[in-house]
Design a protein around this nucleic acid. Structure first.
Length: 257
DNA sequence: ATGGTTGTTGCACAA
C-alpha cells in the first residue's frame, strides 16, 4: 500500500511545525507540497531525512515553490517542464519517480482575473503541462499529477456557482484544460470515489469562509488508469484546515494498493 | 457590491 498526499502549505517556513505533526499523524509514503515559498537552500531536507524521507524541492524564494518528499524512493527528478518546452519562469512543477509511480507536484498559476494577463499565462501553463506529460511519461504507466490546480472541475466543486460565474477557477477555458488531461488518460481520483459529493480543499482566510463552508475543491489528485484501479480511498483532511495558523488549503490523501 | 486575511528577504503584492 502506498499512501500519497498533496498539500498546498502556503509557506513551508510558516507551516513546518504543522506539516511535521501532520506527517507524523498521517504517515504518507509520498507527500507533494506546493507554495513552499522558499529557495532550494532553505528547504529543510535534513529535517525530512530525519523523519525517513528523501526529498526534491524546486523553489526560488518569496513565491511558488514545489516539492516531493518520499520514503519509497525518489529518482529521475525533473524540475520545471521537460524537454524543449518553453521553461516556466516560476517554480511550479517538479516530477520524480517514487515506488515506480511517475509523480508530478504542480502549482498551477492562479489566473487572478479573466482580464488579467496572468489568466492567459495560466491557460498557457496548462497547455505546457499537457506537453510535459506527453514528453515525460505515458498514460500506460503509473502516473500521478497532483497539486493545486486552481481549477474547480465542476460546479459541484464550488460553494456558490452563481457568485463565481465568469471568474477564474471555473471558466470553460480552464475546465477544457482539465478535460484535455482527462482525455490524455488522467482521472480525478477524489471524484471517482465520491460522485456528487460537495467537499472542498481550499477556503479563503477572509470573512470566516472556512467556518461558513464557503470553499472550492481545487486541490486534485489526477491518476492514470492503473492508479484509478489501485486507488481505494481518497479523503480531504479538513481537520488540517482547523486550529492555529493553518494553511488556507487542506491536504488530499489517496491510498493505492 | 464590498470587504475581509495571511504570507513574504514585506512597507506592495500575491493569493
Amino acid at each position: 500500500m502506498i499512501r500519497l498526499a498533496t498539500w498546498n502549505v502556503n509557506s513551508l517556513k510558516a507551516r513546518l511545525e504543522r506539516v511535521t505533526e501532520w506527517i507524523e499523524d498521517v504517515q504518507p509514503d509520498v507527500l507533494c507540497l506546493q507554495e513552499t515559498k522558499m529557495a532550494d537552500d532553505a528547504f529543510p531536507s535534513l529535517h525530512f531525512e530525519a523523519m525517513g524521507y528523501e526529498s526534491a524541492h524546486y523553489g526560488q524564494g518569496r513565491w511558488n515553490g514545489v516539492a516531493i518528499i518520499s520514503k519509497v524512493g525518489l529518482t529521475d527528478v525533473v524540475a520545471n517542464f521537460a524537454g524543449e518546452i518553453e521553461p516556466d519562469p516560476d517554480a511550479r512543477i517538479i516530477t520524480a519517480t517514487c515506488a515506480d509511480i511517475r509523480v508530478s507536484s504542480v502549482y498551477v498559476p492562479n489566473g487572478r482575473a479573466i482580464d488579467d494577463p496572468h489568466y492567459e499565462y495560466k491557460l498557457s501553463w496548462l497547455d505546457r503541462l499537457q506537453q510535459h506529460l506527453q514528453i515525460d511519461t505515458s498514460p500506460e504507466r503509473d502516473v500521478i499529477v497532483t497539486g493545486d490546480f486552481n481549477i474547480a472541475p465542476t460546479d459541484v466543486d464550488v460553494h456558490d456557482p452563481n457568485k463565481l460565474a465568469m471568474s477564474t477557477h471555473v471558466t470553460e477555458a480552464e475546465r477544457l484544460r482539465l478535460t484535455a488531461l482527462e482525455q490524455w488518460g488522467l482521472s480525478d481520483l477524489f471524484r471517482h470515489h465520491h460522485e456528487g459529493e460537495r467537499l472542498f480543499s481550499w477556503w479563503d482566510y477572509r470573512s470566516g469562509d472556512f467556518h461558513m463552508g464557503r470553499g472550492l475543491r481545487i486541490d486534485l489528485i489526477m491518476g492514470s488508469p492503473s492508479m484509478v484501479e489501485r486507488s481505494n480511498f481518497v479523503v480531504v483532511d479538513r481537520n488540517a484546515r482547523k486550529g492555529p495558523s493553518p494553511s488556507d488549503h487542506a491536504p488530499v490523501v489517496v491510498d493505492l494498493t
